[in-house]
Write a protein that binds this DNA or RNA. Structure first.
Length: 177
DNA sequence: AGATTGATAAGG
DNA sequence: CTTATCAATCTT
């Protein structure tokens, strides 16, 4: 039986959640229709000290969402044309989040937001209470492999090379790139 | 390898 | 105000 993830869950550290969210069901309701897709790939962004994290330059109009409580949706436009979707994690006041990079059938962070109609309207949505966007656990588990994060060459070496990308390794899923 | 696309953040 | 940059994707 699938159960919805609550506040306690989202308040765990981002590196733990990034790994644990692989296999969970990302749920989106639009026009009384519920879309459910399984999360197959994530990345962890952790704190102002993580030079790949948007919050590494401190709190701004855009990044203030990262400082919200765990379970908040952080959505922003990348390269002028793609929405990228993150789940804020950890304790309120500490900027950390998990980027959802892939779901079954649609690999790539900009593709899944298009398919699931996730847009900037949902930036700041509280996924613990929302009836538009939430995550469920139906008990599904995958073996996980890790890799370096994608597209963050601007980060300092110790954070550029850290293995904070988590990929479902079920022999089926093939990540983009 | 190149085009696309517009928000964001920093600088004058 | 201007400008460079960007957690990507598609086409050639």
């Amino acid at each position: 039986m699938a159960k919805r993830l609550g506040r306690r869950y989202f308040c765990q550290p981002a590196d733990m959640l990034a790994e644990d969210l692989v296999g969970k069901l990302l749920c989106r309701k639009v026009d009384d229709e519920i879309l459910r897709y399984r999360i197959m790939e994530t990345e962890c962004y952790y704190g102002e000290e993580d030079t790949a994290c948007h919050a590494s330059k401190g709190k701004t109009e855009r990044t203030k969402i990262l400082y919200e409580k765990g379970g908040t949706a952080y959505i922003y436009i990348c390269y002028g044309m793609h929405f990228l979707f993150n789940v804020v994690t950890g304790r309120e006041g500490h900027p950390e989040a998990v980027l959802i990079r892939g779901i079954t059938g649609y690999n790539g962070p900009g593709k899944l937001t298009r398919i699931m109609k996730i847009n900037k309207e949902l930036n700041g949505e509280d996924m613990v209470n929302s009836d538009r966007l939430w995550i469920e656990d139906d008990g599904c588990r995958f073996p996980i492999r890790t890799d370096k994060r994608v597209g963050i060459d601007y980060a300092t070496p110790e954070y550029r090379d850290i293995l904070w990308r988590y990929i479902a390794d079920d022999g089926e899923y093939r990540p983009a790139k």
